[in-house]
Write a protein that binds this DNA or RNA. Sequence first.
DNA 1: TTAAAAAATGCAATCGATTGCCGAAATTTA
DNA 2: TAAATTTCGGCAATCGATTGCATTTTTTAA
Lengths: 344, 344
Amino acid sequence: MKSKKRTTIYDIAEKLNIAPSSVSRALNNSSYVKESTKKLILQTAEELNYKMNSLASNLRKGQSKTIGVIVPRINQNFFSNVIAGIEDASYKQGYNLIICQSNESYEKEVQCVNTLINQHVDCIVISISVETINYQHLKNILDHHIELIQFDRVADELETLKVINDTLQASYEAVNHLITQGYKRIALLEGPQSLNIFRQRKEGYLQALKKHNMPVLNELMLENAWTKDLGAQATRKLLSLPNPPDAIFASTSDFSALGVLEVATAMNIKVPAQLGICGYSNEDFTEITSPSITTIDQFSVDMGKTIANLYFEEMKNTDVSATPKTISIKPKLITRSSTQRLTE
Amino acid sequence: MKSKKRTTIYDIAEKLNIAPSSVSRALNNSSYVKESTKKLILQTAEELNYKMNSLASNLRKGQSKTIGVIVPRINQNFFSNVIAGIEDASYKQGYNLIICQSNESYEKEVQCVNTLINQHVDCIVISISVETINYQHLKNILDHHIELIQFDRVADELETLKVINDTLQASYEAVNHLITQGYKRIALLEGPQSLNIFRQRKEGYLQALKKHNMPVLNELMLENAWTKDLGAQATRKLLSLPNPPDAIFASTSDFSALGVLEVATAMNIKVPAQLGICGYSNEDFTEITSPSITTIDQFSVDMGKTIANLYFEEMKNTDVSATPKTISIKPKLITRSSTQRLTE
DNA sequence: TTAAAAAATGCAATCGATTGCCGAAATTTA
DNA sequence: TAAATTTCGGCAATCGATTGCATTTTTTAA
């Protein structure tokens, strides 16, 4: 292989003195090529170290066997797990993954979408950025006849395939669990309400309170506490209230919950005795803090597999009229020491 | 956009009654198109919601502006951080990323390489699987005139661009630190010796012992303890020795170190007083265990950026004869409570 | 042995963008 | 006003694989 150019089917054809079309057919193991010539072609391809040019093939076939994925951050546990799941399932079907991260920026998200459209991907999988409130770019995907699957953070009003967690339910169960454990004043750390998942987590909280006839106290609901530092900051504020909460549901993330725990520990407040803490996402570390943190598992790798398989299912389905499917995965409340006040 | 087909430069050309070549030139903002017509073309492209077909463009230009990345697992902190770094730097240069995971399987790694060659990527970035001991597939990448960058887990004997950590040095420093803290019998949890990084970590351990004239005890070196469970298992074995170690360097990973810590805690052995523990990788959780775990930071996101930028640098460099560069990033020892026996 | 059917292969257009080359138009210079 | 430049824009080939249709070869049936 010292030549400057790659081997093409023309090289193989020339060497064997046959037509390129036959080479193509043989390589695709298709109909109507004599066994003997097929074997000869395959052998020659091997010899010449032939690798097909997917660009040419895809151009001609009008499909790329590629799935584009856009997430806010690749290196965030939940997302990297989802991606791993998508990769696993896609690979088995011979599909490749092009990955982009929006960095939580609307502008970059739009650019990512455009790149993926250019790349002629067959499907785009997206979890929108916190800034995204306009969905023109997503509609544009559909206009270009590219399958669109939203997951986790989805734009409800857009009719597309969706794979989500039953966030409301999970949130409801978490708060319900806190109430069952005897906590009376439960605070909520909210995420940006522009994202539906955070709205749902709040709604679950509200529903649980209502169910138990507990008052909704505005002073106990703090927005935008979705990092460890912001969680810590919010906690300081909450705990210095004249009538502080006896439990905090960090609905935004486990990192936020970690911030809560650190502040509580620093203030010498006993968890779970004096303060209950519940996070969200089941990050690895929640198991090993002391006390370990109650949280919610989202089955992220499975979610990824579900997403990919949803696409492959949908592919077969030529029925265009069908309403876009939404798959909801039930997350699981993992109760740990940080909320275990009763010993039953 | 209800038409079945995407807008092409031919559609634009036809609508404006000019040649496709002019459209192409205008779109590429290239030479020799009158300002007025250029503006007209751009405007029409916008109107028709034109998105260029990168497949066609790349085919013609013989390059894809795409970088392929192969890692053992996408959802492993170190790798997802590196990927995030690569994405960040690549995006700025207008490059896309195709991601594959080898799942630590040699066979899948080979398949990934082949796919990426097919995809005509301009560069392949790889951290080899634990099974990989044959490098024919990597040579094949070079044969196809694709730039190859190895990182972290590299095949030393293959002359390619490399981005690595100075693992030996880091390991040496870690053990040195343990010795300075007064630990006398330091055990080593080794990773698979087929991977050079694990050989180097062991070598650093050995060199540090030698430097301080400490004996090398085979009973204190256990191979294959690179998960939490295996780390725990190894620890149980070590601590039940007639003459157990007073420190354990889990050179494989922080997860392994976590296993060590859990066993020690369960056995009521005081860390760091009775047992020192040092991990590797600076996973998030090492900061929040009690006690927090001493470990080594690899600057993974930066590593990713370095990788991408190395490629872009190399691109400019038309000098083919130059020896492949190796960039070594110095990791940093993060000393925490788990080894802090002295209070100086 | 010959006609009909089936199997194998070849021809040439196609996918969409790019680009070298050439000619046309516009501009400058003499 | 004519000639020489310079600027624009078009033609057509090209990248490599695929595929509908035509043609040739082989096989089967009559």
